[in-house]
């Protein structure tokens, strides 16, 4: 149903195509009732993060975990695999090569999923704005829920960002995954524009 006999995964060789799922994402509508509110509450208070240490942002995540800032008390915990995480933290500038991995990891997370992008580089390219290899804005490629400005933002700022994210989730606005599915063609076009050797499936399940 998702895939109206349109050829997919054309970036892969014929042999590889059989190894990957060909389906594309679909919008999973949230329930419009109190159950969803309850579930959103649980989601907001159990934020499992997938840290993507692309740039200097990764440095700032470490103090967040340790005793001084102790993110655990907000129900935030790191998880080692995208499958289990619900928050994707992009830790700074993203090169074209990295973006490919960001897209893969983002797509491997399960709906609902949220993205926090750290630092100026993710917002408008920051100090690398005119580089031939650093992308300028993440939200052209994946939906971002929260941007945290700064070069780099301090852990306090990150915690504040998480606070904002919680508010978003509780308000039922953390629907990045659905947004991505909805505007899938647009996002893919943007991604494909800069990722030239597209050797992964169209949607990484």
């Amino acid at each position: 149903m998702e895939n109206n006999n349109k050829p997919v995964n054309l970036g892969l060789s014929a042999a590889d195509r059989e190894l990957f799922c060909e389906a594309l994402p679909v919008v999973r509508k949230p329930l419009q009732n109190f159950i969803e509110k309850f579930l959103n509450w649980a989601r907001a208070n159990s934020l499992w993060i997938l840290g993507f240490g692309t740039g200097c942002g990764a440095i700032e995540l470490r103090p967040l975990m340790t005793s001084r800032y102790d993110m655990y008390r907000y129900g935030i915990a790191p998880r080692p695999t995208p499958r289990q995480s619900s928050v994707f933290i992009i830790g700074g500038y993203a090169s074209v090569k990295t973006l490919k991995r960001i897209v893969r990891s983002y797509e491997q997370m399960q709906n609902p999923k949220f993205v926090i992008a750290l630092g100026s580089c993710t917002i408008n390219g920051g100090m690398y704005w005119d580089s031939y290899n650093t992308i300028n804005r993440i939200d052209a490629y994946i939906p971002v829920d929260i941007y945290i400005a700064g070069c780099m933002p301090r852990p306090e700022a990150i915690i504040a960002g998480f606070g904002k994210l919680k508010e978003l989730i509780l308000a039922g606005k953390g629907e990045g995954a659905n947004k991505y599915a909805d505007n899938f063609e647009w996002y893919k076009a943007n991604q494909r524009k800069i990722i030239k050797d597209w050797n992964m499936p169209d949607y990484n399940w």
Binding site: L19, F20, C21, R101, R104, S105, P201, W205
Partner: peptide, 12 residues
């Protein structure tokens, strides 16, 4: 999903 749809340190 199929056999290569695994998380693989962000690689395929």
């Amino acid at each position: 999903v199929r056999q290569f749809n695994i998380v693989y340190a962000a690689e395929r």
